[in-house]
Design a protein around this nucleic acid. Sequence first.
DNA 1: ATGTCC
Length: 474
Amino acid sequence: MDIVEERPYRFRVERHGDMRVPGVVFASRALIPDARADKSLEQVANVATLPGIVEASYAMPDIHWGYGFPIGGVAATDVTDGGVVSPGGVGFDISCGVRLLAADLTRDRMPPPVLNDLMDRLDEGTPRGLGKGAVWPARDSGRHLRGVLESGARYLVELGHGVRRDLDRCEDGGGVADAQPEHVSARAIERGRDQLGSLGSGNHFLEVQVVDEVHDERIAAAFGLRAGQVCVMIHCGSRGLGHQVCTDHVRTMERTMGRYGITVPDRQLACVPVDSSEGRAYMGAMAAAANYGRANRHLLGESVRRAFHAVAGTDVELVYDVSHNLAKLERHQIDGRERELCVHRKGATRALPPAHPELPGDLATVGQPVLIPGTMGTSSYVLAGVPGGGAFYSTCHGAGRVQSRNQAAKAVNGRTLRDQMEAGGVAVRGTSWKGLAEEAPTAYKDVSEVVTVSERAGLAALVARLVPIGVLKG
DNA sequence: ATGTCC
């Protein structure tokens, strides 16, 4: 494969074979995947063959191998030019993302006994792991699931959970438009019934964090963040419901894409035109699953608020909620002409620049908050969208694995890891030793390097670094 | 990521 450094932090994968556009990887030399160990650059090239793709098959600095598309991939197709939508370009965890809340208190008001009390409350109030259990019992979810699928967190605020201002601090105002719950299968509904308000497992987490470094005071202040402030970061997705929606629609597309004359170099790139009955059905089901994911984070956030009120008597404000697994219909300028594109972001975060019409008024001068969850127990980042951000206003989403779960579980002892984190001043509440070991920081790239490279590549601006003082794992 | 294969 021919890879050319166009400029620092931007590499081009030259067109070859059936590629319709080049690949573009935003990375440092060190972060470019090793082709011998990781097939993700091949996946970048495969995505470039998709019908209707425009500009390039993009990859973020945290690129790694995924189902069909690489994780850290961004691809946009022209809807009016036969452009396709592919569930593999969104991922199984539809609308997986991050919600950041900021408490009205600083670290000095969170000494170990208070922190432990808070962690115990959060432990109780945050259902997680592979087992059952959710903030909402199945009978409530059942009654309200239709509303949740139609409008996400907006529906919950109408019911009295959370406040209106929360919705201004959510991507899409808390709910993705044009959701079509009728394209969510009965099995997906069944899987989602008893999981609304649950964290899940794997790399999903809830952390109590402290703002450790502020890189841009003006933007941080506009986001409601200041040095020393206690925050809570929630990283989770749409659980079994989103997974089932992906599974269902991948199967349909595998069967039907031949009818549209589409062939793909990898079966996992199953896709159909956005403007087809199967394409519209997936878009509608995906939007509904995304709304489930938004509602899931919203309910967990409300649970966090109750814990802070009980333990510290303080308010908690939403900084932002943004997903990093989604496809969206967006209008962008291509060759001097505005076109409707289906922008797939898989392990990539939307990062709108200042003055973008979709931003609420008080964020217009600073850009969209971008939330980057780090590896358990290390650090996480808040970035902001920048003018001219490449790849349809997208940036990285996290550290990215370098070791498989199995490799990590063999290399690390969960109990030892817990003890090390506790000794380092981080309170840990896990559910499984193996699960903890699989998420060891040694299994991941350095998120600081990923974030630094994202900034240097012109994809986003660094605003603040957050470090954990408490970790809740599924 | 995921009732880690209906």
